[in-house]
């Protein structure tokens, strides 16, 4: 079932409350980056059927993904939404504690987005001599997809000179 972000609250309330559906339990909530758009995927469960109902909130723009929160139905979705925010930058409107959950609070990029490349993958690109653990500089040809790497970045004195921390395209952390 694919819905648009504007319908989330309505659809979810219907599925949860309607005596015909009774999807009382939210099995999972996660974000997905397809490369072109962002999605939020919900898996609901009702005791009427042994299978899950998959609700996909499709078409969130990559620049400013926003979706309504479902914490008014399930408290437990709060951390799942925090995780999706942390990993994808999807902003859930209505979640009253939308902070980074895994990464440090001042981390700037969103690791599970498709434009966040591990240093290793940059090294695998043709013609580049980047060793993944020590030197993480980006050659000029590969600048179009920035390596958003933050680990061990502050002590560049003795380390390889190339550790760079590229800013996100949208600028700064949208939550602040």
């Amino acid at each position: 079932m694919r819905i648009s972000p504007t319908d989330v609250a309505q659809v979810m309330t219907l599925l949860h409350d309607d005596p015909e559906f009774r999807f009382l339990i939210l099995s999972d909530l996660c974000g997905v980056d397809t490369g072109s758009v962002m999605q939020v995927v919900y898996h609901l469960w009702s005791d009427a059927t042994p299978d899950w109902l998959r609700v996909i909130v499709d078409g969130l723009p990559r620049e400013d993904p926003r979706a309504p929160s479902v914490t008014f139905l399930w408290n437990g979705a709060e951390w799942a939404e925090r995780e999706a925010y942390d990993m994808f930058g999807i902003i859930f409107e209505g979640n009253r504690d939308l902070r980074r959950i895994y990464m440090p609070p001042d981390y700037q990029s969103f690791p599970l987005r498709k434009d966040f490349l591990l240093a290793d993958d940059a090294a695998r690109s043709p013609g580049q001599g980047v060793r993944h653990m020590e030197q993480t500089f980006q050659p000029a040809e590969y600048r179009r997809t920035p390596v958003l790497r933050q680990g061990l970045g502050s002590d560049a004195g003795h380390m390889a000179p190339g550790i760079q921390t590229a800013e996100l395209a949208s600028g700064e952390d949208p939550a602040r």
């Binding site: 009382l24 339990i25 399930w74 408290n75 437990g76 979705a77 799942a80």
Partner: peptide, 8 residues
């Protein structure tokens, strides 16, 4: 109720 709402 709490158990359902917190996805336990």
């Amino acid at each position: 109720d709490l158990a359902r709402r917190t996805l336990l």
